[in-house]
Amino acid sequence: MWFSPALALVAGACAVAAGPGYPITADGVKCRAGPSTNHGVVKVYSKGQQVSIGCQAAGLPVFGTALWDRTGDGCYVSDHYVKTGSSGYVAQRCAAPAFCRGLSAAGAALVKQWEGFVASPAPDPVGLPSVGYGHQCQQKDCAEVPYRLPLTPAAADRLLRRDIREYTTCLAAMLNAGVRLNANQWNALASWVYNVGCAQAAGSTLIRRLAAAKEDPNSVAAQELPKWKYAGGKVFQGLVDRRNAEVRLFKTPTSRQGFPTCT
Rank of each mutant, 00 (worst) to 15 (best):
G233N: 04
S46C: 13
G72P: 09
L60G: 13
G21C: 03
K234C: 11
V131T: 07
L67C: 07
Q50I: 12
M174H: 12
Y230A: 02
S87E: 14
Q139I: 12
R158E: 12
N244M: 07
G238C: 10
P23V: 08
A17D: 08
I24Q: 07
K227P: 00
Y133E: 10
N218Q: 10
A6Y: 06
G40Y: 14
R243M: 07
A201F: 13
P153G: 02
A177N: 07
C75G: 09
G48V: 12
Y167D: 02
G116Y: 14
N195Y: 00
L175Q: 09
A202N: 11
S36K: 10
A58D: 11
S204Q: 03
P153S: 04
R162Y: 05
K140H: 03
C31T: 06
I24M: 07
R161F: 15
A211T: 04
I207T: 05
F3S: 11
K140F: 04
P129C: 01
W186C: 07
G40Q: 13
L210R: 00
L110R: 05
P217Q: 02
S86A: 11
A190M: 13
M174P: 05
A143K: 09
F236D: 07
P226A: 03
V145C: 12
V126M: 07
T254K: 04
L60M: 13
R32W: 05
L9S: 02
K43A: 15
E224H: 07
Q185T: 03
P153L: 12
T84R: 00
Y147G: 00
R148A: 14
G107P: 13
L239W: 02
C100I: 13
S78I: 13
E215K: 10
P150A: 08
A190S: 13
G134S: 06
K112H: 08
G232W: 04
W2V: 14
S191Y: 12
T263C: 03
D73H: 09
S120P: 15
Q136R: 15
Y89R: 15
L9W: 00
P61H: 15
A188G: 03
R243Y: 00
V196Y: 05
C198W: 04
G40P: 15
L225F: 04
V90A: 04
E115D: 02
K43T: 14
A154G: 04
V41C: 05
A105L: 11
T205S: 05
R180G: 04
G28K: 06
P217W: 01
N244W: 12
K227H: 00
G232K: 06
R165A: 09
P23N: 07
N218R: 09
G116I: 08
T25Q: 03
C31D: 06
S52E: 11
L160G: 00
V196Q: 03
N182W: 06
H135C: 00
Q200W: 15
P23L: 10
F236R: 10
S36Y: 13
G203L: 06
V179P: 00
R101D: 03
T25L: 13
G48W: 15
S46F: 12
V179I: 05
L249R: 01
G59F: 02
V90F: 03
D141R: 11
G64P: 10
M174F: 09
L225G: 06
A91T: 14
G19M: 03
P153I: 07
L103R: 07
A98L: 14
N195V: 01
G59S: 09
E115T: 04
L149W: 01
I164S: 02
M1D: 06
L171V: 13
L151Q: 01
G233Y: 03
L225S: 10
A18L: 09
D216G: 02
K112C: 10
